[in-house]
């Protein structure tokens, strides 16, 4: 799956988790850019991404990522496994 396509799917997940239909994310978006991106919403993002793409992350794997771009790369890696 192309990164742009993954980004589009992940954006829908972000809009759902943060309950903001107008939210637009880019590869540079990080937790610092979204006020509500706290530890609980992070858990919801991780679980929703796992379900959407039918992949599994290791415990804490997504905690170390700096931004959405790194998240997309990790999703892409998991999809190629």
């Amino acid at each position: 799956m192309e990164k742009e396509q993954i980004l589009a799917e992940v954006q829908e997940i972000f809009r759902d988790v943060f309950d903001d239909e107008n939210l637009v994310i880019s590869e540079d978006t990080s937790a610092a850019d979204i006020d509500d991106w706290d530890s609980l919403s992070h858990i919801r993002l991780v679980v929703a991404i796992e379900k959407k793409f039918d992949i599994k992350f290791a415990f804490g794997e997504l905690q170390e990522l700096k931004n959405v771009g790194e998240m997309l790369e990790l999703i892409q890696e998991k999809l190629e496994d």
């Binding site: 991780v46 599994k56 290791a58 415990f59 997504l62």
Partner: peptide, 15 residues
């Protein structure tokens, strides 16, 4: 009577 059952186990976030 309060009853609960686990329906999901999300390893990556220990939830």
């Amino acid at each position: 009577v309060v009853r609960g059952g686990i329906t999901e186990k999300n390893e990556s976030v220990r939830q």
